[in-house]
Design a binder for these strands. Structure first.
Lengths: 334, 334
DNA sequence: CTCGATCGTCGAAGCGCTTCGACAAGGTAG
DNA sequence: CTACCTTGTCGAAGCGCTTCGACGATCGAG
């Protein structure tokens, strides 16, 4: 292994000079800098991460706690992860992957000074992990919105507004009876807040507008989609529009509609709430409120870096939803 | 931050005694050990990862290079990742996530002594990253099978045998005209070897058995599936069986068959090559050769640890395929 | 008994890096 | 010309941990 000592010797300067030349924290003459850089090149010098962490109290690593359950939304999770990793790269940080249920993980990793900050996905309303997070000296950013976010930064799509946007779009097309096919019951029970926030926005907006509306939790499978749709039609026989917030159920919902002899959008309009690529990857291009997962992941990293480098205060950022009209929505049938 | 010094003082022993008590590398009397453990508890002591890495040349971190492209098989990738993270946890290791195309990543992370070993997914036949891997002092394990694996450990499903198994199953049911709907052309072009190995096994086995067989690359979308199926029928009008090796195209293939008025399995039998949960998550339970992604990820970690701790020699492990018959295959129509 | 292991503990020497304080050599303002 | 600042460099003191060698105490074998 080549060390900073080797470089210093090769360049004919002291160790500290090499360090300063590399970090730029003190002025170094052009000539010296050049000699040092050449030495670094020639010796293929790479600073020892541990040594650096020990001396500088900075690791250039971010912890990302992600729900690695294989059940739902894997694609969406992946997009968040991609957003985080990509943006972290920009800030010269690597990403340490922790699983949701490795409760001790955050503590081990933060208390052991392995990471500079923590990003946590899939936050629940009263998440027990928040207490751990608050106890650490590293900043934390949540993707999601707990009941009490004191001292922690949060970022997420404004799911409440997302529901309102979808409802507004459908109302504008004349629909008066709308069903929301949402997250699985288990997700709701876990009090993952995005699911609840969407439902709340939906309920609120539809009742404000005096619409006929029902909400059905939906299991993430073909069969679950069929059942949820059955229940929705049972409760609201004249429904002409659907808001679907469940990526995995989407294909089942569309197939089931076809099976009932209902055409989209002539008989039933469908608005999805999902990442864009999911919306356009269906047999039919879906009108959708985008979940900008990659972007949200990126913003999470930026917020973490802001707190780290500029000591930005903790804040909550809700990203405004954008609806893109495609082929799955049209005027309500007469 | 509480350090090992604090613990030593609290327990009334020297620093080195604490270290030995905690690592178990030298005998320590029960009494002393108890006092130390109590002190650790009370002070909530957690060793500084950087310091430990510096002194011991071990980081307890594994690098995992995964293809974070959002395009294909996200679910499958996630399963590999889950397998790796879970098994790593067992070995007290955390996982540093690197993206495929962060070429400098491995080098930075390995040369900088941030990790004890590297696991690399989605290896191509002549992967340029292998050279980098060979240059590092940390062991590397590939998930996949490059042309030349000298010095590197590999693990993967035996895709060649997987194809043979699928073909054997179908032949046993009397099918004589079989199409393989495989990976997208782009994956083939990248020379990701699992795709090619499956095709090779398929070609070889079908010709050995004197069957009518065609192979069609398949784009990972509904539309791609429809097109591939069209081409297959054009080339082999009397085909009665399909082997599908493309998770994302699976729903499209099934839908398209139905649209053609073909029943599964009465008119056409389908064998999928995919993870089990994908096979049983379809509208119809599919007969499938399982891709045991979680397990493979776990084995990769075990191999890495073996090399690290027992200096096991590099080896290549191909996992034997297992076919589970479900509802999508039946006797060939008369 | 005596000698050599073994056990239990300690002190000190690093591991490779960052950073603080010092200092010489110029530059600039008054 | 003096006083002071800036620039460029160096030496040394850690950062918190592991590990080597040493040493007294115990113990069993001869």
């Amino acid at each position: 292994m080549t060390t900073i000592d080797d470089v210093a010797r090769a360049a004919g300067v002291s160790v500290s000079t090499v360090s300063y030349a590399l970090s730029g924290k003190r002025p170094i003459s052009a000539a010296t800098r050049t000699r040092i850089e050449r030495a670094v090149q020639e010796l293929d010098y790479r600073p020892h991460a541990g040594a650096r962490a020990l001396a500088s109290a900075r690791t250039n690593v971010l912890a990302l706690m992600a729900p690695l359950r294989v059940d739902v939304n894997v694609g969406v999770i992946m997009q968040f992860v991609t957003g985080v990793v990509t943006r972290a790269q920009y800030f010269q940080h690597d990403v340490l992957l922790l699983t949701q249920d490795d409760h001790a993980g955050v503590e081990r990793v933060a208390a052991g000074s392995m990471v500079d900050a923590v990003i946590m996905m899939d936050v629940e309303a009263d998440d027990p992990r928040l207490a751990i997070l608050r106890r650490q000296r590293q900043p934390a950013v949540l993707i999601g919105l707990p009941r009490d976010a004191t001292g922690l930064s949060c970022v997420d799509l404004d799911f409440e507004a997302a529901a309102r946007t979808a409802v507004a779009h459908l109302t504008g097309l004349g629909h008066r009876a709308i069903a929301l096919l949402g997250s699985p019951q288990t997700v709701l029970d876990r009090h993952t807040t995005y699911a609840a926030r969407l439902v709340h926005g939906f309920d609120d907006e539809t009742s404000r507008r005096g619409l006929n509306a029902v909400f059905e939790p939906t299991e993430s499978s073909h069969a679950g989609a069929v059942l949820a749709l059955d229940r929705a039609f049972a409760r609201l026989p004249r429904l002409s529009a659907l808001v679907v917030h469940n990526e995995a159920a989407l294909p089942g919902v569309l197939a089931s509609l076809r099976e009932r002899g209902l055409r989209v959008p002539q008989d039933v309009s469908v608005v999805a709430v999902c990442p864009q690529d999911v919306a356009v990857g269906q047999p039919q291009q879906l009108t959708a409120v985008d979940i900008p997962a990659v972007r949200i992941g990126g913003v999470a990293v930026e917020m973490a870096m802001g707190r780290l480098e500029r000591d930005d205060p903790a804040e909550t950022r809700l990203i405004s939803p954008v609806l893109t009209a495609r082929e799955s929505t049209g005027p309500a049938p007469a």
